[in-house]
Design a protein around this nucleic acid. Structure first.
Lengths: 118, 118
DNA sequence: CAAAGTTTTAGAATTATTCTAAAAACAGAT
DNA sequence: ATCTGTTTTTAGAATAATTCTAAAACTTTG
C-alpha cells in the first residue's frame, strides 16, 4: 500500500459515485498533489481486480468507475450523461435463472434524470 | 445515397455480425477501394440514426456496430472478445415492466464462448 | 541498513476518433 | 444534359484517452 493508492481510495470513500479516470485523477490530486496521471491509470484496474471498485462503460465508450461494487444496474441520462445506481432484484433473478447465478453482466437503461426532465 | 454508403451497407449485408469502425473500414474498402476512414466515421452514426445498424460498447470501451437492430442482449467472451446475439424474451419483459416499455437498454453478459471453452 | 522487488513518474508513443477546409458528387429545376 | 445550391467525401491535421518506457523513488525483507 503506497501513499498514492491510499489517496485514491480515500477520495473515493469521501465522495462515492461514478467517475472517469480523469475525474479520479483530479479528486485524488487534492489528497496527494504530486500524483501522476499514469499512477491513476495503473491503479484503477488493480482496485477493480481487488473488488474495491467496479468498471462500467458508457454508451459513448468512456470508462467510468463506480464505488458501488455489488452487481447492479445503471440508469444513464441521455441528456447530461449522469449515472445512477439502480437495484432491481427481479432483473437479477431472471438473468441468474437464464444464464446461471454469478454470471457477470452489465445492464444500463437510458432514462432522462430528474434535473433534465424539468 | 452515395457509392460509399452503398459500399458500407453492402459489405455489412454480405457479412452480418459485430464490427468495430476499423473492421468496417477494412470490409468496405473491398467494395470501394478509394473509401476514406473519415467517411466510415461520418456514416456509421447516420446508419445508426436511420435504424440500419445498432451501436454497442464493449467492456474495454471500444464501439462495436451490430447488424441486428432489434433490441436484444449480448454474450461477450472474456477470452477472445467475440460477441454473440442473445434473445431472452423473459429479460425484455422484466425490463419493460420495471422501467416502462420501449425504454432503451443495453445488457451484456460475460460468458466464455464455445471455441475458448475447449 | 542493504538488497531485491515493486511502484511511481514525466513524457513520449499509440490508438481511436473528430475536425477542417477544399474538392467532388449529388439532386432538383431548367 | 446543364446549371446551381447543398451535401458528402477526402486527406491529413488535431485531439483525447490511454498505454508504454526506462529511470528514480519507494517498500519490504532478511
Amino acid at each position: 500500500m503506497t501513499r498514492q493508492r491510499i489517496a485514491i481510495l480515500t477520495c473515493l470513500t469521501k465522495h462515492p459515485g461514478h467517475y472517469t479516470a480523469a475525474e479520479i485523477f483530479a479528486l485524488a490530486k487534492d489528497e496527494y498533489p504530486a500524483l501522476s496521471r499514469a499512477t491513476v491509470y495503473n491503479t484503477l484496474p488493480i482496485l477493480v481486480e481487488e473488488g474495491k471498485l467496479s468498471k462500467i462503460v458508457s454508451d459513448d465508450a468512456t470508462a467510468v468507475y463506480d464505488t458501488t461494487v455489488i452487481t447492479h444496474a445503471h440508469a444513464v441520462c441521455p441528456v447530461c450523461g449522469k449515472w445512477e445506481d439502480v437495484f432491481v432484484p427481479e432483473v437479477s433473478r431472471v438473468i441468474g435463472e437464464t444464464f446461471g447465478d454469478d454470471v457477470p453482466y452489465t445492464l444500463s437503461i437510458q432514462r432522462i434524470c430528474k434535473k433534465c426532465k424539468k
